[in-house]
Design a protein around this nucleic acid. Structure first.
Length: 293
DNA sequence: AACCTTCCCTGATGGC
DNA sequence: TGCCATCAGGGAAGGT
């Protein structure tokens, strides 16, 4: 489930590979992942050059000449780069369909919904098993990007994300803190995994009402969010199931998780058994001993 | 307006 | 072995 650190990892992997490349052709399988028709998508993307890559929350943004091409990976979206000419005998195998590629990469299959052919036989493949992901194409003119992201909240690792703006975002909420953390209009990029991890780091129980949090707890949470996201990026993202980076490789941050997916195991801090409950329709993992109610 | 519930989708898993 | 139910969940849409 690509959250901020996973999208950031994909971005960093793709950037040196695709910037400056021209889109030669586009193939679309299931149109459901597109927010426009198959033919519009194909025709508009063709001959465009990829100028820049960036990220906002969980969205990956390709700046082309006329359009922004924007990906949201939903639960199981994967965006991988293929270069059949790439020489790297150490880690690559030769695949009959896709050429040289990482051994773990998927060849295009029934879940590969979009193939974007670039220069020199290279390509971007979008694969998405559950099809919760979405691909957008919006015009660059008239500052449509700002409107597209108008409902997104604070962007971690930018000046927007500071103690003042964070406390302000917490001021009027009557929800549980877990529920608010999942809301992209508060802080952009946090999903279920990093929400649970941040709450653990900050010693806060997920069902706590926002208004019950002391100032010191809010600040601890502010910092914990940065810490868990930073660690996620450092370890190439969390691969619980389907997440892979732009080379088709899994990340390793799942080995660093303190609570997510650890129900039944003991807390690293206090040896209490980690619990799992449902909050805001999401599996929520926590230590009932050191995350106080 | 704010908050909550339902729905979309497929593969993995467990019970029988 | 096969079959069915359950679960995973981001976010839009609908409901309260």
């Amino acid at each position: 489930m690509p959250e901020l650190p996973e999208v950031e990892t994909i971005l960093r992997g793709l950037k040196p590979q695709v910037v400056g490349r021209r889109i030669r052709s586009v193939r679309v399988g299931d149109q459901k992942v597109l927010q426009l028709t198959k033919s519009d998508f194909r025709d508009r993307m063709r001959h465009e050059i990829i100028r820049k890559l960036s990220r906002r929350g969980k969205f990956l943004i390709f700046e082309l000449d006329v359009y922004y091409l924007i990906f949201h990976f939903g639960m199981t979206g994967q965006l991988t780069f293929r270069d059949p000419n790439r020489k790297d005998s150490q880690n690559f195998i030769r695949h009959s369909v896709t050429g040289l590629q990482r051994a773990v990469q998927h060849a295009p299959d029934q879940h590969t919904h979009v193939q974007i052919q670039l220069d020199k036989g290279t390509a971007l493949f979008y694969r998405d098993i559950r099809k919760f992901g979405k691909i957008f194409l919006i015009e660059k003119q008239r500052d449509l990007l700002t409107g597209f992201f108008e409902r997104l909240g604070l962007e971690p690792f930018t000046a927007d994300y500071n103690v003042g703006s964070f406390l302000k975002g917490l001021r009027h909420s009557k929800r549980s803190i877990k529920s608010l953390l999942l809301d992209q209009s508060f802080v952009a990029g946090i999903g279920n995994i990093y929400a649970d991890e941040a709450l653990f780091e900050a010693y806060i129980h997920p069902i706590r009402g926002v208004q019950s949090l002391r100032r010191s707890e809010k600040i601890a949470l502010f910092e914990a969010i940065l810490r868990v996201l930073e660690r996620g990026i450092k370890y190439g993202g969390t691969s619980m199931r389907d997440y892979v980076n732009s080379d088709g490789e899994k990340g390793s941050n799942q080995d660093n998780l303190r609570v997510y997916g650890r129900q039944g195991d003991v807390c690293y801090r206090c040896q209490t058994v980690i619990q799992k409950m449902v909050v805001s329709q999401r599996g929520t993992h926590f230590c009932s001993s050191c995350q106080l109610c």
